[in-house]
Design a protein around this nucleic acid. Structure first.
Lengths: 112, 112
DNA sequence: CGGGATCCTACACGATACTG
DNA sequence: CAGTATCGTGTAGGATCCCG
């Protein structure tokens, strides 16, 4: 289970996976779609996802360069599994923030 | 979605949740069951899980102290959602390690 | 027994500059 | 366009010691 979470646990992996799940996307387009990501982290996370077989990287030999990334079927299955998690988060978001407020009230209100 | 992952993304949260899902568990028992965890991380992670309403903490007023932790229904639902993820990991574990080996072969074999 | 306080290290990540 | 290289920072987590 940690295996699966580690693969998607990074700050940007999911965002990239989602952005690349709807067909080939170019590097710069990813940079735009995954809001707030730095060039460096985009590259690094892309390499990791590619290494794990979650992303296909296709280089068009031309100038200027053109590289397209596409989520593999395996990545799409992963995404489907994550939907259950999203649903959980939505169902309990309110309860969680209530629990937090309650906890912070009982112990020092501002969580130090 | 990041909301959900962040809650369970820590190194130890899942292990603790699993260990505490089968009824009340004491601190020291958790320390034994969650292999490799340090006293510090156990305490910290327990606090976070309690704060998010995923664990109930019950203190028995006696000496020596006795504290029992129990997963809440919300936590059990979370665990159920995570099962899909586990299934994904099992189905593709081989493909992933193959992808990795292939990647490492094409680029510098030892991943530096 | 069930912690809290302190110190330290590794690594994830951000900012910036350079390049084929 | 699609990166790589370098530097700096915050923080997760480990080790150790102390306490009611």
């Amino acid at each position: 289970m940690r295996e699966a979470l580690d693969r998607v646990g990074g700050k940007w992996a999911i965002g990239i996976l989602i952005a690349a799940s709807a067909g080939p996307v170019r590097f710069t387009e990813l940079e735009r779609r995954v809001e707030g990501i730095s060039r460096r982290m985009l590259t690094l996370t892309l390499r990791n996802l590619e290494r794990d077989g979650l992303l296909d990287r296709h280089v068009h030999p031309c100038v200027p360069p053109k590289v397209e990334y596409t989520a593999t079927p395996m990545a799409r299955e992963l995404y489907d599994s994550l939907v259950a998690l999203t649903s959980w988060a939505e169902r309990h978001r309110e309860a969680i923030s209530a629990a937090r407020a309650e906890y912070d009230r009982r112990h020092g209100h501002p969580p130090a």
